[in-house]
């Protein structure tokens, strides 16, 4: 049975930039364990003779011509931005990270 510790959930939350309280960690860790457990049952179905599959279709080399296609205007692109400044997406500062 796969297990996920409270510390692992806290680490994943940190990587995902989600601020979880102690109570939320206590609540979520066992839930995630159940999800992992369910997924693990797939491994039991897939025997040794079934290779890991990332792409169900037997396709390779699907390429696009290198041509320019018009996209969005700046107004359209920024319409979903949390805030806009100088025609750019304005986001909160990130602490302790590179720029």
């Amino acid at each position: 049975m796969p297990d996920i510790t409270r510390e692992e959930v806290a680490h994943l939350a940190d990587l995902a930039r989600i601020d979880l309280s102690d109570a939320e960690l206590d609540h979520l860790a066992p839930q995630l364990a159940v999800i992992l457990d369910s997924i693990a049952s797939i491994s039991e179905v897939a025997a040794e003779d079934v290779p890991p599959t990332s792409h169900p279709l037997p396709l390779t080399n699907v390429f696009r011509e290198d041509v320019h296609r018009p996209g969005l205007t700046a107004e359209q692109a920024l319409s979903g931005a949390p805030a806009v400044e100088e025609q750019r997406f304005a986001v909160p500062r990130i602490l302790g990270e590179e720029g």
């Binding site: 400044e85 025609q87 750019r88 997406f89 304005a90 500062r93 720029g99």
Partner: peptide, 19 residues
């Protein structure tokens, strides 16, 4: 683009503008 900080780099920046 990090704005509000003294150096324009991220340390001390108030917020960031993304292109």
């Amino acid at each position: 683009l990090h704005v509000g900080g003294a150096t324009g780099r991220i340390h001390g920046a108030d917020h960031s503008l993304v292109d």
